[in-house]
């Protein structure tokens, strides 16, 4: 089988179509699945992404980039290929990219999830011959509770801290996770939440696209005497341990990530609470997607690719691991917001 999409320079390229997907090196034409930093890199001449992804990409890569938005499902022609974007359910504007060439269909999922998320367009199943899937959480221990249930745990923790008169600082990736928490918390309260600047920036972009979320205030950096006792504050993981944190006296800290499913990861990070909330597919969702899309060949990117490939081969699939630089839900605090990803 000729490869319609293949790994190059950290991302993928399509030779017959003459374009790159999520390239790490500058390309002439870059199709972007979503605005996380391990998929959207600066320097390409032209970008194409789903309509709702465009404002996020401008925020991240600069207002002056040459970018075209496309509606989900609309076919585009590049060289001998027909290309369309389909919702991936990962974050607002995240897409799977479908490429058709001489009757052969390849789909790259980008980062995706199948759980309900009021802030992202719901995942669409796209039938294909070859599926390139992320495999960040490809171990059977990774099974998610609903975002609603996790938001309830977060809310209970916040209320418990309020009763103790302590601030509750929740670390969550500034693009996607933070907004998902703000939206899910609306089931339990209408109180305001305080945001770190990086989170506030992205939340504004979400609001402008009409995503309903709790009211929020940015942290006032000049007001050193403000008392945050009883408040919920959302900050990117990189802010943990920084001087910025000193304003929250006696704070309880929590972290939102799929990795929090394993106790060792919770303890290593030293946060008081770990909330298991991920914007990636869990093990059952990965299996279901492979099964339902009808692909004969499955290629994997990210994380646990090798394990997933071995398992799929035993199930009778043609499967292989692709080498890309997509990091998935980074387990490591980068400290810098521009490199963060979820």
């Amino acid at each position: 089988m000729v490869a319609l999409l293949e790994p190059k320079d950290g991302g993928l390229i399509c030779k017959p179509g003459g374009f790159a997907i999520d390239p790490w090196e500058p390309a002439e034409l870059a199709l972007i699945t979503h605005a996380h930093a391990d998929h959207a890199r600066p320097g390409s001449q032209q970008y194409i992404a789903a309509d709702s992804c465009v404002p996020l990409l401008r925020k991240r890569l600069g207002e002056d980039i040459d970018i075209k938005g496309v509606p989900f499902g609309e076919p585009l022609t590049f060289g001998d290929t027909t290309v369309s974007f389909h919702p991936a359910g990962h974050v607002l504007g995240s897409a799977q990219i479908r490429v058709e060439h001489q009757g052969e269909v390849w789909v790259f999922t980008g980062d995706f999830k199948r759980d309900n998320d009021p802030t992202a367009e719901a995942f669409e199943l796209v039938p294909c011959n070859t599926l390139i899937t992320e495999a960040t959480f490809a171990l059977p221990i990774y099974k998610w509770e609903s975002g609603h249930a996790v938001a309830q745990q977060i809310f209970q923790w916040w209320q418990a801290m309020k009763a103790e008169g302590r601030p509750a600082v929740l670390f969550a990736y500034s693009l996607g996770k933070a907004q998902r928490v703000l939206a899910e918390l609306m089931h339990f309260t209408d109180e305001s939440v305080y945001l770190h600047g990086a989170v506030a920036n992205m939340t504004d972009v979400y609001r402008r696209q009409g995503v309903p979320m709790l009211p929020t205030h940015p942290i006032d950096l000049d007001d050193k005497s403000k008392d945050y006792a009883g408040q919920l504050i959302i900050a990117p993981p990189g802010a943990s341990g920084s001087a910025w944190m000193r304003r929250f006296k006696n704070a309880s800290t929590g972290f939102c990530s799929g990795w929090m499913r394993v106790r060792g990861n919770r303890r290593r990070r030293g946060y008081d609470r770990g909330f298991v909330l991920s914007d990636h597919a869990d093990w059952p969702a990965l299996l279901k997607t492979v099964e339902q899309c009808g692909a004969q060949q499955v290629l994997t990117t990210h994380g646990r690719g090798d394990t997933f490939v071995k398992f799929l081969k035993e199930q009778g699939y043609v499967a292989e691991e692709l080498s890309t630089r997509f990091a998935g839900e980074a387990d490591v605090d980068t400290g810098s917001e521009s490199r963060g990803s979820a």
């Binding site: 171990l139 059977p140 221990i141 394993v262 106790r263 060792g264 394990t307 071995k310 398992f311 035993e314």
Partner: peptide
């Protein structure tokens, strides 16, 4: 109901 190697690999990853 998983293959032995996958259970072992999972155990290796969790560590407990």
């Amino acid at each position: 109901e998983l293959p032995t190697w996958l259970v072992e690999e999972t155990y290796e990853s969790v560590g407990d």
